[in-house]
Write a protein that binds this DNA or RNA. Structure first.
Lengths: 336, 336
DNA sequence: CTGTTAGCGCTTTCAG
DNA sequence: CTGAAAGCGCTAACAG
């Protein structure tokens, strides 16, 4: 990796390019009023010197720091890793950097959110999954900078989300066609009760309605923690209590895997004795032959980043929301 | 939550407290040369106005931004969550904020590390587990600010680490006393090969030496991914291939759990037919009755933060390293 | 002990 | 189109 002296400043560039600092600044900020020749000369010097503007100075001077804060839960790594990667790619294409602030509890959250703290010293904020604004009086984060919510719905902020109700509905309608009882693995409540996660509630509501259309209902709901082991513990109980044939809806692919594996262990034929429907369509779901509700995770991330970038470019107006429709992907786990 | 106007500035405070901005700055930075009465008057105003200094301005002015960047892997949530919490608590007690930069691949890493970018615009950097300096020519991060490595050993930077070799040795010596073959669940290599993780290598070396002292050796080593499911897949193979009695060393508690559970499923008596030794001593290991090598995770985090804070206070001198000794905690899984 | 002032690196007028 | 200059919020001399 090339090492660059961190001490190069805008006036070094100006001097080397034989222009004023104002002009360098204009080039840096893509101001149109710069002669093409001057611009390219300055750019050449910037390149040669490996100059990078100091984000703090930019911010202090009333410009942008080209920095966004992302506040995200520290669970279920895979989903968030995908989302993060997508957001960071979109942001960095516009030369924005991002820093993460993990949602690890109320005390830490309050620290982040107290005005003027680091998390707010960015040009924009992306909240992932949780609409933290609801924790504040007035229902708004105490910040002037644009805020976007991803993987969650809000009517006060721009947001990009998947219609989890519809996803549940699709799963419910599919499940209603299959013989036998229907069992569900869904998420237990957040022990801290701090964050309100509507996502899983929506999936369950959709599922219930999808079943109801066909006059069916859930036989039992196994609540579990959102990790493989949680799913496995639920699966073990399920196999003790369920008869075949039956259908299982797992509110996340992660929870469906142990069900498939337990079925194999118990000698139940997946797709006949037991049908399994997941939610997410993680990259590995296809190889597992798991029928599931597809969520466009990367698209979600790109969209959220895009919404924020537009605000950072000065767009004003009411909150926009981009809704994605999930799709049922049928595979071996329901097709025998 | 109380909402505070983000626009309060140091001169607002100075005016309200009827002092000069210099004095306010002195109070802010705990400069001794301030009359106690003046100090308390200023502090009262700061409190009343809810004033928080702007970290960018502080940084720009040549002072500290009271900000540290933490670069950490996005896996095995529990260990890192504990470590993070400990570090953040120690840092925030000294009024330092921290932002996370996830290690998600080479491209992103290079972006973080290119000089003058956000990750470096902090007063200090904490690297977790991976010594990123080895990726650079010269073996040093291209930054002037102090760097600390936690959960890893380095001779160029201050570091706080647990002697993983010793941990392995203790496990090996214990295992050598038990009858039957010895099986191991350890970590498969990082697919990207980007980061060199010595931790698990050290544990394995120690284990081998501990066994060798008693003239014993490992019968088979099951490589697996560092999550419950990885452990479970290894455990299933292990139970097909192993005879009883036997002993299993899992290089992380996370991997030991599925072994215990599979034993129960297979009707093997834990502590007699199969003995299990983990590594970490996670908070739940005690309830599981898991014999394991205790790592003082919180202490590790506090120490790393402390090492950094001392550097931030101006301490100079050669790299210091704080080594913690792990301890074997014997529980039901080896005691029958 | 304290007020005043000169920058920190950058953006943004404001004249040319 | 471009240079000079003011100022963002703060720290760190510098005088008193």
């Amino acid at each position: 990796m090339r090492v660059i002296l961190p001490s190069t400043t805008i006036s070094d560039v100006a001097r080397a390019a034989q222009v004023g600092v104002g002009t360098v600044s204009r080039v840096l900020n893509n101001h149109p009023a710069v002669h093409p020749d001057t611009r390219s000369r300055v750019l050449a010097v910037i390149e040669a010197l490996g100059y990078q503007p100091n984000p703090h100075a930019r911010r202090i001077a009333g410009g942008r720091s080209y920095t966004v804060s992302i506040m995200l839960p520290m669970v279920e790594a895979e989903f968030y890793t995908r989302l993060l990667t997508a957001m960071e790619e979109t942001l960095s294409a516009q030369r924005y950097d991002s820093a993460l602030f993990p949602l690890l509890g109320r005390a830490r959250l309050e620290r982040y959110l107290s005005s003027n703290r680091l998390a707010y010293q960015a040009d924009g904020v992306i909240m992932v999954t949780y609409d933290l604004a609801s924790l504040f009086e007035g229902g708004r984060l105490p910040t002037e900078c644009p805020v976007v919510l991803v993987d969650g719905y809000s009517d006060r902020y721009d947001c990009a989300y998947v219609d989890n109700y519809l996803g549940g509905l699709l799963a419910g309608r599919a499940a209603a066609k299959y013989p036998g009882e229907l069992y569900v693995l869904s998420l237990e409540d957040d022990p801290e009760g701090l964050f309100v996660n509507r996502i899983f509630q929506d999936r369950m509501r959709g599922l219930g309605d999808g079943l109801a259309e066909a006059g069916k209902r859930i036989t039992a709901n196994y609540l579990c923690a959102l990790h493989y082991r949680g799913g496995q513990q639920a699966a073990e109980r399920l196999f003790r209590e369920a008869g075949r044939p039956c259908t299982v809806f797992a509110a996340a692919d992660l929870l469906a895997v142990p069900v498939l594996e337990e079925a194999e262990r118990q000698g139940w034929r997946v797709g006949r004795d037991i049908r399994v429907i997941g939610f997410d369509d993680q990259p590995w779901a296809s190889a597992q032959g798991l029928t599931t509700v597809h969520q466009p995770v990367e698209l979600l991330g790109q969209t959220a980043a895009q919404l924020l970038l537009e605000r950072l470019d000065g767009l004003v107006g009411p909150a926009r929301s981009v809704r994605f429709e999930p799709e049922l992907v049928e595979r071996r786990s329901t097709l025998g």
